[in-house]
Design a protein around this nucleic acid. Structure first.
Lengths: 137, 137
DNA sequence: GTGGATGCAAATTCTTTGCAAACCC
DNA sequence: GGGTTTGCAAAGAATTTGCATCCAC
């Protein structure tokens, strides 16, 4: 029950309510991107009566604290547990199940030949496709 | 007045209204990402009384027809003219003025060492930062 | 003339906010 | 107990839809 997210929340001084415990539970069990409404219906299975805005507020809070990662998909915003600070990496993202698979390759480590006057601040690199199990089915 | 977007709209069988002419004008004059409301206020300067939903509907339509590119920024969705079919490329994107600068480098042409069971469908690679003029000011 | 496009208004959906009651520490 | 968090309800914002009128072809 004391997963990484719970620990991180504690260290930020947040109170560990049952709602937050289940949010942490969900993100720890999945490495994919989920929609706010998916989070809410998951929590509601365990805590009937949980309000949508509590879930939403917590997702926003966790994203602001940089504990989860926010990502804008065409169907709307999705969240996933932020990867540990171990090593910079990117992801393969399954377009079917939103599962993510880390990859080590980073384009910015290559010789990009960028115009010198452009000051790089950040970058985004993702590969979309079908993961092994989604491709099989 | 007969820019690429206008031609593309004609070839899709769309009627060229003055609203659409100004939308085409805007996208042809800019290589950056613009918000729907920016598009609307630009059109409204030339066509007072143009409705927001007409602009919005047309942006959606052009995006569906793949003539403009939709992109989700934190402040909301933005659009820009789709690059010509000349050569696959990526962009530097200025986080200040949303200007884009094409770059030839494509990570997928490199040796990524992806897991073989993953079927790649598409990819995204963008570099964010400050363009020359924004960095100077 | 006719079907597609527009403008208006209202409906949906998504996201945010205020506040009293409930609960964690 | 005290300050956070929650649930409810309502406000805002973004996006979509219905429909009569208008206009490009």
């Amino acid at each position: 029950m004391s997963n990484r997210l719970i620990q991180a929340m504690k260290s930020k001084g947040l109170r560990i309510t049952s709602q937050r415990r289940w949010i942490a539970e969900l993100f720890s069990a999945s490495n994919g991107f989920v929609l706010p409404r998916q989070v809410h219906s998951y929590i509601a299975q365990h805590l009937p009566g949980v309000s949508y805005d509590t879930v939403y507020r917590n997702l926003r809070l966790l994203a602001d604290l940089n504990l989860i990662e926010q990502f804008d998909f065409p169907e709307g915003v999705r969240f996933k547990l932020r990867c540990g600070p171990d090593r910079h990496h990117h992801h393969l993202i399954c377009i079917q199940c939103q599962q993510t698979i880390p990859i080590d390759f980073c384009p910015l480590e290559k010789d990009l030949n960028l115009p010198t006057e452009f000051q790089v601040v950040s970058h985004k690199f993702e590969v979309y496709g079908l993961c092994g199990s989604c491709a099989a089915s």
